[in-house]
Amino acid sequence: MNARLARRLAALYPSAWRQRYGDEFCKLLEDEPVSTRAIVNVIAAAVAEHIRWTFDNGDACQRSLQFLSGAALAAFAAGVNFYWTVVDTPLAPAMSAHAALRACWLLVQAGAFVFGLAIVATAASTVPATLRDVVKARRWGLVAGLVPMMLVPLATITWMTIASWPSGSNAATWPTIPAHWWLVSTIVLLLIVDLFACAAMMRDLTGGRQATTRRAGWLKANAVALTCAAGMMAAGAVGWGLFAEQYAAANVHGVAFLGSAALALVAARPRRSTTTTDEDGRLSTRTID
């Protein structure tokens, strides 16, 4: 395998892993004959290594942030899907006349509002410190990786809006039900991919830094708020399904909201600790209390 291909394949691994094994791994790849199976094997191993580094390493605060980002995206995906499931049906106008249905819908909206506030509060407390660290250490590669990750939800929502915009004679029937489901499925898929990218990026952004160390209490409060908000949304979705006799749709969204509540609940257990990176790129964690 030529050196250039070997370097590109090694670049797929997490940065801390590369610091420790990158050079020798490149040499091994150069010694190995090129084959599709070897390339696929390296790509699959790199993905597995990202998942392992993302969820097995780092301090409690970093893991909390990763779980919170997952919870936020899961709830967002479920919320978008739920909204689209309701907005195109006769149930949307019917809600104004049906008090229980409307109450459940308002419960979901209230949960989404609290959820949004908690996400903004979490971001406001961690993003500036993390960005300061990134700028100070001149880790521009991480910023370059972060930008597309942030653009995915934005691009998705923009595309969704354009695709569903009523136009001409199709205004009353667009999007059709199949187009509607394709759009929603693609959005959810993109958001799931973004969820993993977001978690992996959070790992690298906060890796070896102490940007989150002093914010354990704040993170915990926000994680508790997120858990409650996701629980409210789950209850609202299931209640809505009960009164609208749309059990299947309600159950799917209720489970999705509960999933995000579970992620936020896991995130609600941060401890004060500090993570450092040694010369070999290994992360070590020291719990403060």
């Binding site: 420790r20 791994f25 094997n41 790509i43 191993a45 597995a48």
Partner: peptide, 11 residues
């Protein structure tokens, strides 16, 4: 063993 498998196990 594939290279990725090998180094995953080595790590």
């Amino acid at each position: 063993l594939g290279p990725g498998t090998l180094y995953g196990a080595i790590a």
